[in-house]
Design a protein around this nucleic acid. Structure first.
Length: 671
DNA sequence: TGACGCTGAGTTTTT
DNA sequence: CTCAGCGTCA
């Protein structure tokens, strides 16, 4: 992809003012962003350190960085910022922590941490902790909408919202006390800082002289504000996005931010990328006609030069068993007959639960597959444990992390001791860690308990000393040995094999920490273990592990997870009312986002697309009749082959899959 | 601490 | 139906 098409070139070369690039699926938007960065550095002579590109995921940032590095080949890319919104926010908070009143080495609360904190707070107020999830979600929504606790309380409607608003206030107060921020704060705190300290904002505006934003349709209100603040009125901005691929409104994304740009910048230039380099024209035609049913601010029609390709197929099956069986046998068949590698197939679905039956079928036919999604690296218990040790190491006020590891491995410190300690600490306005050292504690706890607590604190303290004075990575390795963590994992694992895997994860984390620290020190020799740990909290190591594992497997994932990816052969299962337009979306009348979800699924396919649906489905124990998805009626009938409807009975249809399978035996014998 | 049984929910998910 | 989360009991 060394040649840019005229539209792409226009998007790369236009630097006269704010630019919106409407990049259809598969139109080479990453090329445009990376080429534009290179262009800015080489042709416009903007030093790389004054350019920032912002993405949503670590993976996207990493890929972009790599591609820019290739383009600039040794030329000066030093100081270039390519990061996620959250990472950028983290950097801003770190640099400005003094102004913000944070102690250095603050903690970042992830989803589970904040849930735990909320549960605590709700229980304290005698509220039932049933609705932690709801409360957490509401607080996150408020934060993304930039609503402060007081405002929330003022606007709150009904007892539930009042409860949420109160919890919000307490939650924020406690975060402060822990010297911690949550994920939403990583954006929100910088925005507030810039709002109240123009001189700080000016400094950052001077540093970021050109800003590029990817996936702009996914920005929420606070991210949008951050972009606008950083850009100021200079308008040195390129945003890339696609309103038709906005599928995250349910978590605060505001696709209308795309249209909003025209009001913010009357001089906005719009470039549409409509040539698709991925799919056959039949697939694109289907995508175009489907999405034409949504209202649009910017019209766009994808086209390609990849030839018309095979018709799309819609397979009607008797039930979900037949549906999954058909997909599994057909993939196996095409793999053997047409020599298509397994990795060229993807099966996409709306909800994670849909993968279960399919997995069983794939296993029974011995088709190798890989599921993306599921528990991420950082959600694994052993990684959380170790991360909490690291968190306490850099921020002893992080009571949450403290509580997780104080008795792990077992140190004979039970709930009663911790409760007493907690009461003492909160009366003294001290963190749990600091409270352990206080003389007054001897009034409330037996000497033996205090001794055990202090032994723990002392261990952390001496570890910290070793980190600062000597080799921090070596010190952390020693710590893991010292606490007998490997032993503990072995005792608490179901099998020897899983224990080994978990131990490997632990050492992998330590090694990642080492690598992160080294990388940070390249830019800034002053960087210490604190920075590396904070950075690590944000890095999704899972992705890196996955990259290494590029074995030949069928890919299974949700439609959401498939965004940005492409596969030669795509199966889109569960094309039914209540499933693809999901039931909740039908009820809440948010069909348009569901349609975009279907659009995303269709546009993942390069060569063939097969959609499947079942007539009946077991749901919550009972059999339910399923209606075909309305989206099927919105596809061009002339490009679609239907199977299992009318001319072929469901039984014959099922037999069809089987027949090919038995034919495979012969093929196998030939090999 | 660990095993068992009850209850209730049951989209999508990144940072 | 299936699984997580919780509480109870030995």
């Amino acid at each position: 992809m060394s040649k840019l098409n005229p539209r792409q070139r226009e998007a790369v070369h236009y630097i006269g003012g704010p630019l919106l690039v409407l990049a259809g699926a598969g139109s080479g938007k990453t090329s445009v962003i990376t080429r534009k960065i290179a262009y800015l550095v080489e042709q416009c002579e903007i030093p790389a350190r004054h350019i920032a590109a912002v993405t949503f995921t670590n993976k996207a940032a990493r890929e972009m960085k790599e591609r820019v590095g290739q383009l600039l080949q040794g030329r000066d890319s030093r100081g270039l910022t390519v990061s996620t919104f959250h990472n950028l926010g983290l950097n801003i908070i770190r640099r400005e922590h003094r102004t913000l009143g944070f102690k250095p080495g603050f903690s970042i609360f992830d989803d589970q941490d904040s849930k735990a904190l909320l549960r605590d707070l709700l229980l304290h107020n005698d509220e039932d902790a049933e609705q932690v999830q709801t409360v957490q979600h509401q607080i996150s929504t408020w934060k993304n909408d930039m609503i402060e606790p007081e405002q929330a309380l003022a606007v709150a409607n009904g007892p539930l919202e009042i409860l949420c608003a109160r919890a919000y206030e307490a939650y924020n107060r406690h975060l402060r006390a822990y010297n911690a921020v949550d994920f939403d704060d990583l954006i929100l705190v910088p925005v507030r800082l810039f709002g109240s300290h123009p001189e700080v904002l000016e400094r950052w505006q001077g540093r970021i002289r050109y800003l590029l934003v990817d996936e702009y349709q996914d920005t929420n209100l606070s991210q949008y504000r951050l972009v606008r603040q950083l850009v100021g009125y200079r308008g040195a901005l390129t945003v890339v996005g696609d309103d038709d691929q906005s599928i995250y409104a349910w978590r605060g994304a505001r696709p209308e931010n795309l249209a909003q740009l025209q009001q913010d910048f009357p001089s906005l230039k719009v470039v549409k990328l409509e040539q698709n380099y991925r799919s056959t024209s039949r697939i694109l035609k289907a995508a175009n006609t489907l999405i034409a049913n949504n209202p649009h601010v910017f019209e766009k029609t994808l086209w390609s030069e990849m030839g018309s390709g095979d018709p799309l197929r819609v397979l009607h099956t008797r039930n979900e068993d037949a549906e999954c069986d058909r997909i599994a046998t057909e993939i196996l068949d095409r793999h053997l007959r047409e020599r298509i590698p397994f990795r060229d197939f993807a099966v996409l679905y709306r909800g994670n639960h849909q993968s279960r039956m399919l997995e069983m079928k794939l296993q029974s036919y011995q088709v190798p597959y890989k599921i993306s999604g599921g528990t991420s690296f950082f959600a694994r218990a052993e990684i959380k444990d170790l991360m909490c040790y690291l968190k306490v190491l850099v921020n002893r006020d992080d009571d949450n992390a403290f509580l997780r590891i104080i008795n792990l491995p077992r140190r004979e410190i039970g709930p009663t001791t911790l409760q007493k300690l907690g009461e003492y600490a909160s009366a003294r306005q001290a963190s749990l860690f600091d409270a352990c050292a206080e003389i007054g504690l001897e009034q409330v706890l037996p000497a033996a308990a205090i001794d055990r607590l202090r032994r723990f604190c002392h261990m952390i303290e001496s570890l910290y000393q070793r980190c600062v004075q000597g080799d921090p990575i070596a010190a952390i390795r020693e710590l893991i040995d010292e606490i007998g963590y490997e032993e503990w994992i072995r005792q608490n694992s179901a099998s020897e094999a899983t224990a080994e895997k978990r131990i490997q994860n632990v050492w992998f984390l330590v090694d990642s920490l080492r690598a992160t620290l080294e990388r940070l020190q390249e830019d800034n020799p002053e960087a210490g273990i604190e920075e590396a740990i904070a950075r690590l909290i944000l890095i999704d190591l899972m992705n890196r592990q996955e990259e290494e594992d590029d074995s030949d497997r069928v890919q299974l994932m949700t439609l959401h997870a498939s965004k940005g990816l492409e596969f030669p052969h795509v199966y889109l299962m569960g094309m039914e009312e209540e499933l693809l337009p999901h039931r909740n979306s039908i009820e809440s009348d948010t069909i348009e986002e569901e349609r975009r979800l279907a659009y995303v699924g269709i546009t993942r396919a390069k060569r063939t697309l097969t959609m499947t649906l079942a007539k009946k489905r077991r749901q919550f124990g009972e059999e339910v009749e399923c209606a075909p998805s309305r989206f099927l009626d919105e596809l061009p009938a002339e490009d679609i082959e239907r199977e299992g409807l009318g001319d072929v009975s469901p039984e014959q249809n099922r037999a069809k899959g089987r027949a090919t399978l038995s034919g495979l035996r012969g093929l196998l014998d030939d090999l």
